Computed example of a mutant assay.
Amino acid sequence: MPTPPLWKASIVLNKKDAPDVVAALELIPPLPQAVLTEEDPFRDDGVVEALYDTPPDGDLIAKITGRQVHVQLLPDADWIRLSQQGLPPVRAGRFFVFGSHDAGQVPHGVIPMRIEAGMAFGTGHHETTALCLSVLSDLAKTRRYDNVLDLGTGTGLLAIGAAKLWKKTVLASDIDPIAVEVTRENAVANEEGPRVRALIADGPTHPTLFEKAPFDLILANILAGPLTHLAPQICAVLGKRGTLVLSGLLHWQENLVLSFYRPHGLTVKEIRRDGSWSALVLQKA
Results as ranks from 00 to 15, higher is better:
residue 6 L to N: 08
residue 7 W to H: 12
residue 17 D to C: 03
residue 27 L to R: 03
residue 36 L to S: 08
residue 38 E to M: 01
residue 39 E to D: 15
residue 42 F to M: 09
residue 43 R to S: 12
residue 54 T to E: 15
residue 61 I to N: 04
residue 63 K to C: 11
residue 67 R to L: 13
residue 67 R to F: 06
residue 71 V to Y: 10
residue 79 W to I: 02
residue 86 G to F: 15
residue 89 P to R: 03
residue 92 A to S: 06
residue 93 G to N: 01
residue 94 R to D: 15
residue 105 Q to W: 00
residue 109 G to N: 01
residue 110 V to G: 00
residue 112 P to Q: 06
residue 115 I to W: 10
residue 117 A to C: 06
residue 119 M to T: 04
residue 120 A to N: 09
residue 126 H to N: 09
residue 130 A to N: 07
residue 137 S to T: 00
residue 137 S to F: 00
residue 139 L to E: 02
residue 147 N to P: 05
residue 148 V to A: 12
residue 151 L to F: 06
residue 156 G to Q: 05
residue 160 I to Q: 12
residue 164 K to I: 10
residue 176 D to Q: 14
residue 177 P to W: 10
residue 182 V to L: 14
residue 191 E to P: 05
residue 203 G to N: 08
residue 208 T to G: 13
residue 208 T to K: 07
residue 215 F to Q: 03
residue 219 L to F: 07
residue 222 I to D: 11
residue 223 L to Q: 08
residue 226 P to M: 02
residue 232 P to I: 14
residue 238 L to E: 05
residue 238 L to C: 11
residue 250 L to Q: 02
residue 252 W to H: 15
residue 253 Q to Y: 12
residue 253 Q to G: 09
residue 254 E to Y: 11
residue 260 F to A: 10
residue 268 V to L: 13
residue 269 K to I: 09
residue 271 I to G: 00
residue 274 D to Q: 15
residue 281 V to H: 01
residue 282 L to F: 14
residue 285 A to C: 03
